[in-house]
Design a protein around this nucleic acid. Structure first.
Lengths: 186, 186
DNA sequence: GGATAAACGGATCGCCTATCCGATTAAGGG
DNA sequence: CCCTTAATCGGATAGGCGATCCGTTTATCC
């Protein structure tokens, strides 16, 4: 890979910065809109990010990396149940705090390899933590590995349906997750 | 209200029928598309249904009525826990079987008065069943009335995220609801 | 400073929602 | 049966957004 030309790198940063701002203020990403706000032509934006999904995943990448890092630390926790529930709590909190994360998590067809890689990593860690908790007898055996992500997305979605303001979301999400976790215990 | 002219009534039926078919085959509703398939002008479709939401709610109305009817019967059930869990099961099953219901349920800003009315009725029944189950000591006290609909939508959403084919959905949804219900018991 | 490939930017297409208004047709009285 | 009229029809059209294309500009390297 030849490095990006200087102006291209600068514009890439501008685009991602603007996109992050839009996501944070709850505005849906629109590439024409991003181009206008970044003071660039639409062509430029579309060359860097062929679809809205691609830009969304790029914006979400740092958050996915943070989650993966937290997961790696969770693997060192001695208490299987605590590690598991704490990890799930982080996943849910991240999703309700960041709409880009919620969308990327729910979408199973990634456009960027990096996204696939990070999601795979996050899922693998979750599976491992679940296995440990199950072995320790703390979790019902009928919860499949493939259920973790859908359930986290479901809780995040329920929180969005419930809450009018973003500020309400965190406590609501925690309450919903607590209920779910109680249902998972033996 | 003067009754509709004969041709208007015929076209209304055609539109709703076509829309129901589209929803059933999983195609997203598009009013131009509906007009073409129904052999009508776009103007006609938009006069009957000013927005896509309005048509979607009209399509969902019979299902909402069925749910309300089931709820009324559930109120006569002697076993509070059975009545409650059975009602929630019906709500979830309906949502995962019918995308129009899922969307209408998650959307809090209805366009048709009839939709508001039916949803209110369904929520009221759920609240009542929850109160009885709580009084009977079968349900944890920290579940609020306003949580019922979001949680049902969350489970339906989790099911959509999990399942590739519509056929997989019902068992998955039941499994998720079972887990949630277990978390709700005292 | 000139050659060249990379990047830029906006005109433009295709699709969808939604509106508007002249043409058409159903409904009711003479 | 026809005429009036108001309701309805239907397609042309505006406006927004995703996405593409291509002539122009600019960074980079020698």
């Amino acid at each position: 890979m030849t490095p990006l030309r200087k102006d291209a790198a600068r514009n890439w940063d501008r685009i991602v910065t603007v996109a992050r701002e839009l996501v944070d203020e709850g505005t849906p990403l629109q590439l024409n809109d991003v181009a206008r706000r970044a003071g660039l032509g639409v062509g430029t934006v579309y060359r860097h990010f062929p679809t809205t999904e691609a830009l969304l995943e790029t914006v979400a990448t740092p958050c996915l990396e943070t989650l993966a890092a937290h997961g790696t630390k969770a693997l060192e926790d001695d208490n299987p149940w605590h590690a598991f529930s704490d990890y799930l709590t982080r996943l849910v909190e991240a999703q309700v705090s960041d709409p880009s994360l919620a969308k990327v998590s729910a979408n199973s067809h990634d456009t960027l390899p990096r996204t696939t890689e990070l999601k795979h990593q996050i899922i693998t860690i979750g599976t491992e933590l679940l296995a440990r908790a199950r072995t320790a007898g703390a979790v019902r055996p009928d919860l499949a590995d493939g259920d973790l992500v859908p359930l986290m997305c479901g809780i995040a979605y329920a929180t969005y349906v419930h809450s009018d303001t973003p500020a309400d979301r965190l406590p609501t999400a925690r309450r919903y997750l607590d209920t779910l976790l109680r249902g998972l215990t033996t």
